[in-house]
Design a protein around this nucleic acid. Structure first.
Lengths: 343, 343
DNA sequence: AATAGTCTTGCAAATGTTTTCATAAAATAT
DNA sequence: ATATTTTATGAAAACATTTGCAAGACTATT
């Protein structure tokens, strides 16, 4: 009755194998340091006892926790789906486990989540974008763990970042519509208050339109959250008017999808009557009917690269160097944009 | 130079506050046991030093890790998006952190993930469905931690489960099409080898069709993964023939969406020429044009209930009681099904 | 057969908390 | 005022592991 819990620990395995706990530990962490024969005995003892090692104990010893945190605005949405999957796959493949959290586009909540993940001693932390609370930035600085802002590239960021130039994405989208000859262009974006990605896209797009001499009609600057249903309803309202735009520049593909459905519902031909362009190229955007013209964000590559960077930063004990990596975004011309209707 | 790491720990906080480590610990975990004045001093010291407590240390002490594991087949897809979000929200709100993993519909990988999460000493573990490796079941049994199979209800499951009766879903979908008068019905499902949800739906649907006297044409039993693009291509092939079905029963909404796009592309009227029914009612299905008729799975409620059950099981030290909860699934008649075309 | 070198292993200290037990101080009752 | 109960705190053991150090066991070299 000396053991209160029946769960086998390293010393019970050691006893079973007839060696010391230290040797078992070494067999697990530095197999090359222990004699093949002993290793065999230990393997057998582990198998026999059903031992599962306790990461918490090694974490506490100062070893890494083998966990990496990822905080995204939302999960219940296709926006970050590919990113999360790719990030998780890469991280997992290198022996780490993902701690995932979502804050619903609220930076105060985000700070609380950061603290929570730090309590769990994640070895590294990834966030989306560069809009974060002052307190978030401070605690990240203080803790000095590898941190990375994903999704938005900014040449003057204060923490490492890896993503696309969202302003460029907005510019490309706007230019594409202008190039096709559109002069009646509406934009649909979410609230850009705490969302630097949307803000960059939006202001660059507006600037491009303005530079082309387009007045900025307030009623053609729609705001709606990243939600297909709400985007569809907002678009229905916008498009119902006879004085409607000939093109819609959407903050991302989720909105674009909603806009497309609205057009379909109203019997508008896309792209004959109305051009629609999205940003993101999310899963499924290529399969829409008609297939969506959009600006591709290489989400899988970004996710994998982010994971690789963080894992490397954890492995190399050295001070993790600041990186700022820009992935190219690219116009994917599919079938929802064309020259504006005559008349 | 006595401290090698500069990170403040509980004793440095204690020193700073002029109390013992035990008191700091108490102030954190049982605030009512420490004098308000001392609490104040401690709070200040914590603030000042930027102390973040170490969950690993409490985990190792036998306290709970405050983490819950969730293993899903896939993240890069809308299928489990709402479930994961709801689960995470509920778990998070109760002070737990989510450890997420995905296995890509491979049960061997799943077993490895289960082990990994157990190494991290998750307090509870949730899996999707009831198809799992023998080894997975064994280790779950041995470890005796609260475990839960989500998504599929089975009255004779060997572990707790919480979800819908997938056979019922398949039956409802098939009955709906029969009721409308369809006699030429094709089914599109993924590989059902290691996927009990799909298997239950499919076999119940087939049985219902057979009971109605419909022969099971092999070329009308399509197999394609849960992927809009592949489903669209498979449907294009199926629907291009003049000898085509009048209705498509799809394994889930992702497939249904692909089928719908295929029909649109071929210029088929939905539901005039072709009826399509999905299963799941995923985010966005209601917004499709035309809106998708489907069998609703209450993903948010399931996710929240699953989380609540596991948290409760963790909190109550008692042996966690087996539960088997069945959520109702429900036919949502939207606009993609109708009576078959005459002629 | 002796010496030097290389492997392999065990001991013990260390990691950051929590909690039991004991004690001191304060509050209450007599 | 004293005796008793309550409240607040500290000391130390416990949790499961890793690792530096030292010593014992081989192997290779002469």
């Amino acid at each position: 009755m000396k053991k209160q819990s029946d769960k086998p620990d390293i010393v019970s395995v050691a006893r079973l194998a007839g060696v010391s706990a230290a040797t078992v530990s070494r067999a697990l962490n530095h197999p090359d340091l222990v004699h093949p024969a002993t290793r065999k005995k230990i393997d057998l003892a582990i198998r026999k006892s059903g031992y599962i090692r306790n990461r918490a104990a090694q974490t506490i010893h100062g070893r890494r926790s083998a966990t990496i945190g990822l905080i995204v605005p939302t999960i219940a949405n296709v926006i970050f789906a590919e990113l999360v999957q790719a990030f998780n796959d890469a991280v997992s493949q290198q022996g780490f486990t993902l701690l995932l959290a979502s804050h619903g586009y609220d930076l105060a909540t985000e700070y609380a989540l950061v603290r929570k993940l730090l309590e769990h001693r994640v070895d590294a932390l990834a966030l989306i974008g560069l809009d974060h609370g002052e307190d978030t930035y401070r605690v990240l600085r203080e803790q000095g763990l590898p941190a990375l802002a994903i999704w938005n590239y900014d040449p003057v960021s204060t923490i490492s970042c890896l993503g696309i130039d969202n302003a460029e994405a907005g510019r490309i989208a706007a230019s594409h519509l202008l190039m096709l000859g559109h002069r009646r262009i509406a934009t649909i974006f979410p609230d850009t208050g705490e969302n630097d990605r949307a803000r960059s896209r939006r202001s660059a797009a507006q600037a491009t339109l303005k530079a082309a001499g387009l007045g900025d009609r307030a009623d053609w600057q729609i705001q709606t959250p990243y939600n297909t249903g709400q985007a569809k309803r907002a678009s229905l309202e916008l498009l119902a008017s006879v004085d409607r735009p000939t093109a819609l520049l959407c903050g991302n593909d989720v909105i674009a999808q909603g806009a497309l459905y609205a057009a379909l519902k109203l019997g508008l031909k896309v792209p004959g009557d109305l051009s629609i362009i999205g940003i993101g190229d999310f899963v499924g955007s290529a399969e829409l009917e008609p297939p969506l013209t959009t600006i591709r964000i290489p989400a899988r590559r970004i996710g994998a690269a982010a994971a690789d960077h963080l894992v490397a930063a954890v492995d190399s004990e050295s001070e993790d160097a600041m990186i700022r990596t820009c992935f190219e975004c690219e116009l994917i011309m599919r079938a929802t944009t064309a020259t504006p209707p005559v008349g």
